[in-house]
Amino acid sequence: MEKKRDKDYWSPYIAGAFAGLVLVLSVWITGKYFGASTSFVRSAGLIEKAFDAERVGQTEYFVETTPKIDWQWMFVAGVFFGALIAAKASGTFKVQAVPGMWQAKFGSNIAPRAIVAFLGGTVAMFGARLADG
């Protein structure tokens, strides 16, 4: 495996320190801690509401975690734009359907990666919600 320090990126210690600083400022200024998985619950609820609003209104979990766009939802949306800006500005933006390590083992076919990633995501989110992460 290549182990050279990648000149296109920052040291993970420096980038991590800045990320920690952003958290401290956020807690100081708005009292908000970072998270992402609750926004997936709210989004799932919003999507389900489009089909059967009455059922969502009676689902206990969606009553406790209201399907709506809140601070954290916008934070998650911001992560997308922040990554986009950083990638474009540094020239590391790359449209890639299958990650390199995956491709080396399983080939460049999109379908297997899509199915496995979907199932992995399903299990990961179920676990994250259970552990309240």
Binding site: D6, Y9, W10, P12, I14, A15, G16, F18, A19, V22, L23, S26, I29, T30, K32, F34, I69, D70, W71, Q72, W73, M74, F75, V76, A77, G78, V79, F80, F81, G82, A83, L84, I85, A86, A87, S90, T92
Partner: peptide, 19 residues
Amino acid sequence: LLYGLITGILFGFFLQRGK
């Protein structure tokens, strides 16, 4: 909501820079 978006942009920026 605006604070959320700005905070997310900053955090996402450093996540990307850290690879």
